[in-house]
């Protein structure tokens, strides 16, 4: 029997156990094959449960387990690294009919994936606030800051930070559907999401792509630069300040 046949029956409970598998008396494998089916379903469901604690709270454990079952059949892992499993969840949620009324779910899933990526991202040493303050304004504007590999930016038209925080930190639930941009930073080993000042996301996105500070300021509307740089410094998110092209 080929592994293709084994695999086809594994992820499809409607199929009988493959011929060629037997119990010790040579009878069809039946429930014995179900052990493998169950192992795959339970272990992948558990990987998804760990990845999406907030989605779980939002839809409830029972619904999440049923949804995970649909998800793992449609999107089995493509890597032996379970720390990557679930990357298809945001798109899956966008198209999963039973949750179409919860428009914010896909962005919450993106936030949770970004937290996990940040957790496993490379370490880096940050620059001090003093080092940044020592730069003249012109030098600062021309510089290209390197940001920590663990930094992630999630932009949403939903109050994703407030929803995340209400479920993980017990803060008040959002009362209105305002858009929120979230910066995930990992000062040591624990990633934490921060709500960005309005308008700061294009600036951070530009810096992440290697722009100079002056260029990044042109990327979007006016915003609170002092608060934004303060957040980057407080979360140890700037790992180098490379001198830019002096004009």
């Amino acid at each position: 029997m080929s592994q293709t046949e084994f695999r086809a029956a594994l992820l499809n409970p409607e199929r009988p156990a493959p011929a060629g598998l037997a119990d010790p008396q040579g009878r069809p494998a039946g429930r014995r094959f179900d052990v493998y089916r169950n192992n795959v379903t339970v272990s992948l469901t558990e990987a998804l449960r760990q990845a999406f604690p907030v989605i779980r709270k939002l839809v409830g454990e029972e619904f999440f387990t049923a949804m995970a079952r649909e998800h793992l059949r449609a999107h089995p892992p493509t890597s032996p690294l379970m720390m990557h499993y679930g990357r298809d969840m945001p798109e899956f949620l966008e198209n999963f009919p039973p949750v179409q009324h919860l428009g914010y779910l896909p962005d919450i899933a993106r936030l949770e994936l970004a937290l996990r990526e940040s957790y496993h991202a490379a370490d880096a040493t940050s620059v001090s606030a003093e080092a940044l303050q020592a730069l003249s304004p012109d030098t600062l504007m021309a510089s290209r800051p390197t940001l920590a590999p663990s930094l992630r930016l999630i932009r949403s038209r939903w109050p994703i930070h407030a929803i995340w925080s209400a479920n993980m930190r017990g803060t008040e639930a959002p009362k209105s559907a305002v858009a929120e941009d979230v910066l995930i930073a990992r000062p040591d080993y624990d990633p934490e999401p921060h709500r960005l000042p309005d308008g700061a996301a294009p600036f951070i996105a530009a810096l992440m792509q290697g722009a100079a500070v002056a260029e990044a300021l042109e990327a979007g509307p006016e915003f609170d630069l002092t608060a934004t740089l303060g957040l980057l410094l407080a979360t140890r998110a700037i790992t180098a300040v490379n001198p830019g092209d002096q004009t």
Partner: peptide, 17 residues
């Protein structure tokens, strides 16, 4: 055991003859 089939990783230790 085996656990990978094509591009898929099935996250279990599957048996072989």
């Amino acid at each position: 055991a085996w656990s990978t089939h094509g591009a898929e990783f099935l996250n279990d230790l599957l048996p072989l003859p």
